[in-house]
C-alpha cells in the first residue's frame, strides 16, 4: 500500500514538474557473507522508477534476490526483498554526464523456507529498516532519452552481515 502511495505521488507530480526515468535493465552485485564467513557476491533483480526536477531526483527502487544453503536432507532457501526511496542530487560534469549522489531510506524483508526431508516450513521477518548512500555516473548520449549508468551503493541495517553492505550496479534506462 505504501509503495502504491509513493508511485501515485510521483506520477501526479510528473504531470506538472520534471522527468520520469524508468530503469528496467539493471545488473547488480551485492556483497554478502556465506556460512563459512567467506565474502560472496549476490546477483540481484532490481527495478527503479525516478522523478527528476532540475538537479534533484527522487527514486523508488526495489531489489530481490534468492540464496540457498544445503547439507544432507536440509535445504534452506532465503528470499530477500527491499524497497528504498533515494533522494539524489545531480552534479553536471559534462553536457551528457552527471554525477549523482544519493541518500536513501527504506525497508527490507527476508523470507525463509526450511525443508528437511519431506517436511517444510516457511517463516518471514518483519519489515526492517535500512539506509544507504550511493554514488553514480550517469550518461545520457545525444539527448535521446536513453540513459546508461554505473555506480556503487552502500547499504546499512542493524542485522546485515557484513554491515555496511556494498553493492555495485550497471543499468540502462529511459527518461520520459
Amino acid at each position: 500500500m505504501s509503495k502504491f502511495l509513493i508511485f501515485l505521488i510521483l506520477f501526479s507530480a510528473r504531470i506538472s514538474l520534471g522527468a520520469i526515468t524508468l530503469w528496467p535493465a539493471v545488473y547488480s552485485l551485492r556483497t554478502d557473507r556465506d556460512e563459512f564467513q567467506n565474502t560472496q557476491f549476490q546477483s540481484a533483480q532490481q527495478f527503479s522508477l525516478a522523478l527528476q526536477i532540475q538537479s534533484w531526483s527522487l527514486e523508488f527502487g526495489r531489489t530481490e534476490f534468492d540464496s540457498s544453503s544445503e547439507e544432507g536432507n536440509i535445504f534452506i532457501k532465503e528470499k530477500y526483498e527491499d524497497s528504498i526511496l533515494w533522494l539524489g542530487y545531480h552534479f553536471k560534469l559534462l553536457e551528457e554526464l552527471d554525477l549523482v549522489t544519493s541518500g536513501g531510506i527504506g525497508t527490507y524483508q527476508e523470507k525463509i523456507t526450511t525443508t528437511v526431508g519431506l517436511i517444510s516450513n516457511r517463516s518471514e521477518s518483519e519489515q526492517e529498516m535500512l539506509t544507504g548512500i550511493a554514488g553514480e555516473l550517469r550518461w545520457k548520449p545525444f539527448d535521446l532519452g536513453f540513459l546508461l549508468s554505473s555506480g556503487i551503493r552502500v547499504l546499512m541495517a542493524e542485522n546485515f552481515d557484513p554491515n555496511p553492505q556494498p553493492e555495485f550496479f550497471v543499468r540502462a534506462g529511459w527518461m520520459f
Binding site: I9, I53, E126, Q127
Partner: peptide, 23 residues
Amino acid sequence: SVLTHLFLCFLVAAMSTGCQKTP
C-alpha cells in the same frame, strides 16, 4: 514550495514503510 512538497512526500513514504510491529 514544490521542493518542500516533494520533501514531505519523501518523508511520508519513508515513514509509511517503517510503521510495522517489531518483535
